[in-house]
Design a binder for these strands. Sequence first.
DNA 1: ATGAATGCAAAAACTTTGCATGACG
DNA 2: CGTCATGCAAAGTTTTTGCATTCAT
Lengths: 135, 135
Amino acid sequence: MPDRNELRKAGLKVTLPRVKILEILDSSDNRHLSAEDIYRRLLEVGEDIGLATVYRVLNQFEAAGLVVKHDFEGDKSVFELDSGEHHDHMVDIDSGEVMEFFSEEMEQLQHDLCEQRGYELADHTMVLYVRKKKA
Amino acid sequence: MPDRNELRKAGLKVTLPRVKILEILDSSDNRHLSAEDIYRRLLEVGEDIGLATVYRVLNQFEAAGLVVKHDFEGDKSVFELDSGEHHDHMVDIDSGEVMEFFSEEMEQLQHDLCEQRGYELADHTMVLYVRKKKA
DNA sequence: ATGAATGCAAAAACTTTGCATGACG
DNA sequence: CGTCATGCAAAGTTTTTGCATTCAT
């Protein structure tokens, strides 16, 4: 039961809502889910967990470093399991599909741009909004 | 009266709220203001303009390309006058200061990363969260 | 004059919180 | 058992909308 250990390692009590939410984040095809998405899937699976709890649990997961929270749309946040490997995102503006990518060159460049100005890079967000090229 | 012409060029009727909001955006030291910020400054200057109007006007300005809307914080949006020159942002996480910068190399790299994957870059958001380097 | 813009208050959308109840260790 | 987590409903935030009134052209 890997999920349970993840929770214990994070110092979180192993409760049914937390386990179920972790399962959903882990098993979903779409790696990026909103609180509402998760809530709906819980209901579908017959778990009667409140939306408020979903929010609370997700926030705890974020604080514990288990998930990362993104604001791609500005209005609604989405959460993804933290794989440990940093990456950025590309969003297909037609389909809404979210893709992940990593570019060492990009990371380096961001770092350098900050250094040049006397700052150190603490964190960054980058989303490329793209469209499939016509063949 | 440059403001009035900007409005006419954008196909917007020249009304007092629109002129005043444009003035505030133009004269503020802080280039990045929230709707609430603008609303507050309007009251300070004695203009009795409703918050709903501020939102409506800002949205029209965005649609007209006069301002750009950003979601640096996820909860509250900020608006800045569109200077015409694209740039990205660096936010000092200690002071909250927002700095603008532009890197041709960065733009090129973003473009290439999309092309490599068969997409064309339509738009992007990038915010570097930084901290002043200790001397 | 006439269609568009504004103000106000109400609603919407998302998220957080208070409090009584129930579950984990 | 004591404490922490949950559920529900209520409240909080930010932003949008309906409608009567006012304003720009």
